[in-house]
Design a protein around this nucleic acid. Structure first.
Lengths: 256, 256
DNA sequence: CAGTGGTCTAGACCACGAG
DNA sequence: TCGTGGTCTAGACCACTGT
């Protein structure tokens, strides 16, 4: 994936990388990143795979694994028969999806929530389908106006399977839902599917987001999954069109 | 990446895959896809890597390469110590970006263009920057209203480095720009960066797209690159919000 | 033609999961 | 404890690029 949603006029944020495991291909990768950032120009040729293998005391397979990762993250490109080359720097250096809280912190904005309400409801058809529940099953419904430095950015409705997060409605502070899921329930969200529509805001939503009625906005439906691909969260959000844009990178545009 | 833009209410389209090269890991991949589509249930366990290697007469490394691809495309997930399992079927089966023409054909709609104009212009600052040209360099400017079954879907301005595609303005039919680039100039687009904004249409654009003024729309800026990461096309498009949605899949939502 | 990346082999040991 | 996926080795040959 390779997608970044964020406030317009993105400025390079703090790296929020986890602690890298010290495998050999990780070390090779770090060596190559240092090499690239240490002064190699775009389109300059990297050492050959065989040279790197000998220099670093690993096999070519391990070097190739590291290069595979760098190619996936678009730091390098490879041309068979010619070599491996440094890419132009990318618009967005991180290709991970961050939570709203994290996204704001990376931009030196203070994330917050307003108008928070947490209720228990029946899932109903639409939300039940998204979470793989029956319509009668109970879900936790968290409604928040997400803010940055106190200014409203996004109106969000999140839904969780109530039986998977007992006591959530009582314990949740309203701030970082993903943080709460991880700390209290050991649930980590690894992947999300999103559908995005361009819409204009009705008067109610416009009022909550403090923009004129009929302002442009993104309507986003998101289903987030854990590492075993179980649907954990379903969310429907409205992002202010004047504050947000999507940046994404698409691979392999096919023929024609 | 893993993104799909398309008309709303996506219905499974024809596969538009190129002719697969017959490497062993490709054969293993096809074997596994057949296995999965041939009746394996979601979350059912695949044979172990060692079993597959023996069954198919290849080494485990080759099996793992095939499984890496299937995992990237989200057909399977792996749990260390436990096994490899079939994923829930994805919303969108193809994770490639297709050209407008191809997208429409896959949905049994007839792609077309109206109001086409092809001109030679100076790049200017914005377009020159996107294509890595100086502002005075000439670009081919192709303006089209893209249609499906004759109904306007999208207003698109595409820009190409004129020196890279001599004679383009004379030869281009107005239909498939990517097809023309490949057939006449041997240029294949492999990757694209996109930035998407939510906007409302002004009266001129609304008229061309035959919707009321101030209708919601996506404004998309796209830079498309070849396999060596040279910027080939820069395009600014307006997609009708009532006809289009973005579906995308994001990996590795990070901590917090 | 020489040199590069792409593919593949036949092993080995480690880290993690579940019973 | 045992079986699984995760990592790694030391080679080999093929396909493609550029001179």
């Amino acid at each position: 994936m390779n997608v970044k949603i964020g406030p317009n006029h993105y400025q390079k944020g703090a790296e929020v990388a986890g602690p890298a495991r010290q495998t050999k291909h990780t070390k090779v990768r770090e060596y190559l990143v240092d090499l690239i950032e240490g002064g190699l120009e775009p389109n300059e040729k990297l050492p050959t795979e065989r040279e790197l293998a000998e220099t670093l005391g690993v096999t070519r397979v391990t070097v190739r694994k590291a290069l595979d990762e760098l190619e996936k993250d678009q730091l390098v490109y490879r041309v068979q028969g010619a070599g491996t080359f440094v890419n132009e720097p990318r618009i967005s250096k991180t290709f991970e999806f961050h939570s709203f809280s994290e996204d704001m912190l990376a931009r030196d904005l203070t994330p917050g929530s307003a108008e928070t309400s947490i209720t228990l409801e029946s899932a109903g058809g639409r939300i039940g389908f998204a979470l793989g529940l029956s319509p009668a099953d109970e879900v936790v419904h968290v409604m928040r106006v997400r803010t940055a430095d106190g200014r409203p950015m996004c109106l969000e409705h999140s839904y969780l399977d109530a039986s998977a997060v007992p006591g959530f409605a009582q314990a949740f502070s309203g701030e970082s839902l993903y943080h709460e899921l991880r700390e209290s329930y050991g649930i980590r969200l690894e992947r999300a599917d999103q559908t995005i529509h361009a819409v204009v805001l009705d008067e109610a939503a416009a009022g909550l987001l403090r923009v004129p009625p009929f302002s442009p906005a993104f309507s986003v439906q998101r289903t987030a999954y854990d590492h075993r691909n179980r649907a954990i969260e379903y969310a429907e959000s409205l992002y202010r069109g004047d504050r947000y844009s999507y940046e994404l990178s698409i691979n392999r545009i096919s023929s024609q």
